[in-house]
Simulated scan of single mutants.
Amino acid sequence: MRAAVVTTFGGPEAVEVVEAELPEPAARQVRIKVAAATLNPVDAGVRQGVFGGAGKRIGLGWDVAGTVDATGVATAWSVGDEVVALDPGMVRPLGTHAEYVVVETDAVAKAPATVDAVHAATLPLNALAAVQALDLLELSQGQSLLISGAAGAVGGFAVQLAAHRGISVTALARETDEELVRSLGAAHFASGGVQPGGFDAVLDTAFLGETALEWVRDGGAYIGVIPQAAPASVRGVRTGAVEVSADGARLAELAALVDEGVLTLRVAETYALDEAAKAHARLAEGGVRGRLVLVP
C-alpha cells in the first residue's frame, strides 16, 4: 500500500509517498481502508523534526475516515462499518496518511451519517481537542469564555461546543472572520483591545500565552493547546493545556452533534495522497480556513 512518510526532516519537500507493508490488526484493533485523512499542523511539526525520531521512517496523519476492512479479536466493529478515528502518535512507522491504517478499537466511532468521508475526516483530532479543552475549563452555563484563534479548526469547534453548552462565547479572530465566528455561535467578537480580567476563562488556540492569561479574571481558568507550554499561574488563575487523547465514545458523541447540525465540518481543499507534499506546502502558506484533506 501507499503511505506518506518522512525519512529526513525539512520542508514540504521532505514528504514522500512510499510503498509500505499492509498492516494487520491485532486483538482489540481494526484495520480501516482510508477514504480521507486530514492534514493538521502537528503533521508539519513531525515533518520538521519537532518531536524527534531522526534516522527513522515516520508516518504522517492522525485523523481518518473510512471503512473497516479487517478486525482483530475482541472488537465490536464489523467489516464494512463506516467509521472515523483518531490515531495519535508523533514517531511511528505509519500514520493515517495511507491507504490503510490499523487503530485501537476503542478509538473508533461510527461516522456521521449526514456528511461525506472528506468532511468526516476533519472531525476527530480538532473536535476532540476542543471538547477535551472545554472539559478542563469546567465552565457552567452562563459563564464567559474568550476563545483565541476562534476561526481556526480547534477554535471553531470550541465556539460551537461552548455555545451549545450555554456558555457566553467571545471570539477573538481577524476582522475578516467576524461573520464566520458569529455564524458558529459566538455571542461577542473581538479583534483586539481585549479587556484584562474580563472573562471567567480563556481557551487559547492561537498560542498567545501570557497575553491571553491577562484576560482571565482572578481565580479563573486558562487552557492552551500545546502540552507543557501553558504559562505559569498568576492571580489564582488555574492554567494548563489539553493533550488530546483518542476516545471513541466521545468521538461518537461529536459525530452525533454533526448529524444534529450542532457542529460544522469545514474543508478548505482536497489533495490526492500522491500530492501530500503539495498539501504540506499549502498548509505552510497559512491562511487556511477549514482543513486540507488527503484522499488515497
Rank of each mutant, 00 (worst) to 15 (best):
A212M: 13
D177R: 09
V108I: 03
L125R: 13
R92M: 07
V181L: 08
Q141I: 00
L136E: 10
E179T: 08
Q160L: 13
G185P: 10
V159C: 00
G149F: 11
T96P: 14
A127G: 05
V103A: 07
D116N: 15
L134W: 04
T75Y: 03
Q143W: 06
A130Y: 04
D81K: 14
V91F: 12
G197K: 15
H119I: 01
A109W: 04
Q160R: 14
R92V: 07
Q195D: 01
L146F: 06
T205N: 09
G193P: 03
A150K: 08
A153W: 07
A127D: 09
G193F: 05
G89S: 08
P112I: 09
L213W: 14
A186M: 02
P112N: 12
F207N: 15
E178S: 11
A151N: 10
V169A: 00
A76L: 03
P93K: 10
G156W: 02
S168Q: 14
I147W: 10
D204F: 01
V83M: 05
Q160Y: 12
P93A: 12
R174K: 10
D81S: 13
G193N: 10
T205F: 10
F207Y: 14
A163Y: 01
S148N: 12
K110G: 08
V115T: 05
G89H: 11
L146S: 02
T211C: 04
R182G: 02
T122P: 05
W215K: 00
E138P: 02
L145M: 04
P112H: 11
A171G: 00
T114I: 12
A190W: 06
A171K: 06
E179N: 04
